[in-house]
Design a protein around this nucleic acid. Structure first.
Lengths: 142, 142
DNA sequence: GTATGTGCAAATGGTTTGCAGTGGG
DNA sequence: CCCACTGCAAACCATTTGCACATAC
């Protein structure tokens, strides 16, 4: 898994990949740092960033980044889409294809060479949706 | 256009919206700052950021922040998708719907409340695509 | 007149990087 | 034994924010 793609196989990289693949949440680099520190107390945040980046390049990890916000990482590289909660920021997998997964041309659409797409839904996750409607009914009562 | 949505209508906000709507490119906040400074030399970058954010909230401008790096802004709020070049970073409009625009449920899909979706293609723009294949053939020749 | 919005500059926060030291092969 | 990788801390850079002043209404 970690073989061949890298010049050296370090314990740090192995643990980062292993822990990320255990999760179905989509942790930030900082969260990964906290998780990995349980097993490698001396690891640095810089190493976490560097390895996540290299794992992305190697195609073993997906990066879900957003301008101005924290990037999140996904250990599941199977094609699938995401739902981002605008209140709490959590990212969940969307298993049902909500958009017809017709692929764009793989290359040369009017000179553009397509490499992929990013599709993300946004809205309120179940918890935040409940919390909001609760607040609304309270404010109506008061 | 700028009326009603805001408590006060300032020249700064009007110029920012006006200049952004002239463009079909998708400038960053820094680029908008440069553009607007031709007409308002004393404007500050902070004001550009604040107003772009408020214009997004008012639904007059779209913010394209799906990828890491700098956010880009779009004065065209008609529903359409985008193509981002991974080499030079330019963002172009995608006019032809490459994905069937089937809308996700408007709310309550397994407790999730959908507010919208963001779709972005990425790959190489015509210029960068040409530049890359040129380099490849050169390296083959050499 | 007032409080919303601006200009300025400093702060913030996620991410990257330079460097000396470590350890994988 | 060498050089890719690490730990550490400082640097970076897009964005946000605090504050005194300006101006829209």
């Amino acid at each position: 898994m970690t073989t061949e793609q890298f010049q050296r196989n370090t314990r740090q990289r192995a643990v980062i990949l292993e822990e990320l693949q255990k999760l179905t949440s989509h942790p930030t680099a900082a969260t990964m740092y906290e998780i990995v520190r349980c097993r490698l107390p001396k690891i640095s945040l810089g190493t976490v960033y560097r390895n996540l980046e290299r794992l992305v390049e190697a195609g073993l990890v997906r990066k879900l980044d957003q301008a101005g916000g924290e990037a999140r990482f996904d250990g599941n590289v199977q094609p699938h889409d995401h739902f981002r909660c605008v209140d709490c920021g959590r990212v969940d997998d969307v298993f049902a294809p909500l958009l017809d997964p017709v692929e764009p041309p793989t290359h040369d659409w009017r000179g553009y060479q397509f490499l992929g797409r990013r599709l993300e839904y946004f809205g309120l996750c179940p918890a935040c949706s409940a919390r909001r409607s609760e607040r609304t009914s309270i404010s109506k009562e008061t």
